[in-house]
């Protein structure tokens, strides 16, 4: 009788052990599957964060284009317009040297149409492509599309052409 009871007790324990092993195996299996699924599904999150940061930086550059030194005031309803004549005059103005303190690069570049002369001078303006206001070493640059507007005497009206404001910030080379 005692021997029979011992046997029953061992069998019960054996059954419990079996169930525990099965449950642990199932848990490990589903855990591995879940890890695979999550890694595939969320693999692009880092890239998405970088893209969002870049867009935020580009929005900041656009705000620079809205400052009084850049803005085109002839039309009230043009948020993207900058005054190219005003920017060109600022280029060699000594009172504006050091005005943009934390900026390592600040330039305005024409996208279309492109001319042969790259940097604008008093001789080549306005048939030129770039006006550089600040240029130092060591920066990460961001650019924003704007409309470069100026008075064109040939057609007797304001002419606007698509361009970019390019801003480089010091000490953020590895920000991205």
């Amino acid at each position: 009788m005692i021997i029979l009871q011992d046997v029953k007790y061992s069998r019960g324990q054996f059954k419990i052990q079996q169930m525990v092993f099965v449950l642990v195996a199932i848990l490990i299996f589903f855990g591995i599957v879940a890890v695979f699924y999550v890694s595939i599904k969320f693999g692009s999150v880092r890239q998405d964060v970088q893209d969002e940061r870049q867009e935020a930086a580009i929005a900041q550059v656009r705000k620079m284009a809205g400052t009084p030194e850049f803005i085109w005031t002839s039309w009230e309803d043009c948020a993207s317009c900058v005054d190219m004549d005003k920017i060109f005059l600022l280029k060699n103005r000594t009172s504006y040297q050091g005005f943009w303190k934390d900026v390592a690069l600040l330039k305005v570049s024409r996208v279309y149409p492109k001319y042969r002369t790259e940097e604008c001078t008093t001789v080549s303006y306005p048939q030129c492509n770039e006006i550089t206001l600040v240029k130092k070493e060591g920066f990460q640059s961001y650019e924003s599309f704007v409309s470069l507007c100026r008075y064109d005497g040939d057609i007797g009206q304001a002419r606007c052409e698509i361009g970019k404001v390019i801003v480089g910030f010091e000490g953020v080379e590895n920000a991205m």
Partner: peptide
């Protein structure tokens, strides 16, 4: 797009 629309 915003800048293109102002292109003369």
């Amino acid at each position: 797009l915003e800048s293109s629309m102002e292109q003369t």
